[in-house]
Design a protein around this nucleic acid. Structure first.
Lengths: 150, 150
DNA sequence: TGGCAATGATTGCTTAGGCAGTCAATTCTC
DNA sequence: GAGAATTGACTGCCTAAGCAATCATTGCCA
């Protein structure tokens, strides 16, 4: 490729670029919500995972957050310090640490969640339910493909 | 919300969760490509931006990468050290630094790009062109909404 | 049963990135 | 035209996250 033969490929029409951009912009757009509750984006992700039954152990949480286990340990540390989750050494397999939300954790999660859903509803206000449904279906299809590869 | 009234909301069917997940998984799935060329994910993003005419200045690049200008300065530093891009103090407005790809930068960008497109084609192999087109349209629509809000 | 690989959690080390502050250049406003 | 506000680039500081190594526990299997 040289300077005089411009590249016809358009990132603006590519799945890779657009998903990245959507993720980034949504992340930034949600910052005020998390700032209100004094949690970070990843902390919220961890809380949500626990709330929905994923991440009952630190290793599972790490896989879910796409973080390494070291980083996850530290996230769990701070969430525990803040009294939002509890660690509990598992009795059957004493390697694993079971994680669970405290009452305070459940409250923060619930409050954040309401606001996040609200924000997304606003962003998708001019989409019909069918359009959203179809879009979610496509995302799910792609997600499943990427999961199997990894 | 209490423990005995489980939450009916399903992240698996939410745009926010799925876009995040797709982004993360794709990012991880592309790591081998970038490792081959010895660039990081963000370095590649910067190179692609320049290649496609975005990010002619450091500030513009920062906005595009959703990074602050400080981080961008350092990214530009390393790319310049590696001889992939060039800085050039603008003569009309002497505050701005114009950025451009070197020949080496163009080559790396082109090689990465081929591999990235290849990978995405593989991931989307069982999608019809119409399905991809429609999906891209939806992503674009959402992206545009998020851009205007921000 | 005894060794060995695999898994889970943790810690130290290093780097990437956000934040705030600085300086220079430009634009706006009176 | 002088001063204020804005913009662009850059730097130091601090936290977050990736990598590697360690240790404990478990499962495997010969």
């Amino acid at each position: 490729m040289t300077a005089d033969t411009p590249d016809p490929f358009d990132p603006e029409r590519s799945v890779g670029y657009l998903t990245k951009r959507v993720y980034q912009l949504a992340r930034i757009g949600l910052e005020p919500v998390f700032a209100d509750e004094e949690v970070t984006h990843v902390q919220w992700s961890a809380l949500m995972a626990l709330h929905h039954g994923v991440g009952g152990t630190a290793a599972e949480l790490a896989r879910h957050l796409c973080h390494d286990t070291g980083a996850t340990t530290r996230i769990v540390d701070t969430l525990e310090e803040r009294g939002l989750i509890e660690r509990c050494r598992c009795t059957e397999d004493r390697r694993v640490v079971r994680l669970s939300l405290t009452e305070a954790g459940r409250e923060v999660t619930a409050r954040c969640k309401v606001k996040v859903i609200e924000q997304w509803n606003e962003w998708l206000a001019d989409w019909s339910p069918q359009e959203v449904e179809r879009f979610v279906g496509d995302l799910l299809r792609l997600r499943n493909k990427l999961e199997t590869v990894a």
